[in-house]
C-alpha cells in the first residue's frame, strides 16, 4: 500500500498507509494526522485541505485537477505557492508511493 508522509508546520512527520484510489486528505483524516481539516469532505467546495507538495514530487503529482480546485486554492488561508494543492484532489496510485506533503500553518 502506498505510504504518504505528512510534515506538519512545526516539522513533525507522520507516515501512514493510504490505499490506492484514496485521496491524500482522507489519508490524513482516517489516520488521525492533524493539520488537514477537509471540512467539505472533498466536494470540492472549500480550501481546508491545502498542502504543499514536496519539491521532489511536484512533477509526478502535477498541478490542480481542474478549474474548481484552482479557483478554490486562491481562497486558501495560507500563502499559495506553485506546489500548493488541495489534498482531496490528489488520488493515490502506486506511482505516488512515498509521497511527501507539507502542511500549512493553518487551514482557516
Amino acid at each position: 500500500m502506498p505510504k504518504v508522509t505528512y510534515i506538519a508546520h512545526d516539522g513533525a512527520r507522520s507516515t501512514v498507509d493510504v490505499p490506492v484510489g484514496e485521496n491524500v486528505m482522507r489519508g490524513a483524516l482516517y489516520n488521525g494526522v492533524d493539520g488537514i481539516a477537509g471540512e467539505c469532505g472533498g466536494a470540492p467546495s472549500c480550501a481546508t485541505c491545502h498542502v504543499y507538495v514536496d519539491d521532489a514530487w511536484t512533477d509526478r503529482v502535477g498541478g490542480p485537477a481542474g478549474a474548481a480546485e484552482a479557483e478554490l486554492l486562491e481562497a486558501a488561508a495560507c500563502e499559495v505557492k506553485p506546489s500548493s494543492r488541495l489534498s482531496c484532489q490528489i488520488v493515490l496510485s502506486d506511482a505516488l508511493d512515498g509521497l511527501i506533503v507539507h502542511l500549512p500553518e493553518s487551514q482557516y
Binding site: 481539516a37 471540512e39 467539505c40 469532505g41 472533498g42 466536494a43 467546495s45 472549500c46 474548481a68 479557483e71 478554490l72 481562497a75
Partner: peptide, 23 residues
C-alpha cells in the same frame, strides 16, 4: 458567482456528512 464557502452544510469538524449525497 465566484466560489466562496457556503454554509448550506455548515463548516468546521461538524460539517454535514450527507452533503455529497444531498448534492
Amino acid at each position: 458567482r465566484p466560489r466562496k464557502t457556503i454554509l448550506a452544510f455548515t463548516v468546521g469538524v461538524h460539517s454535514c456528512m450527507g452533503g455529497h449525497l444531498a448534492r
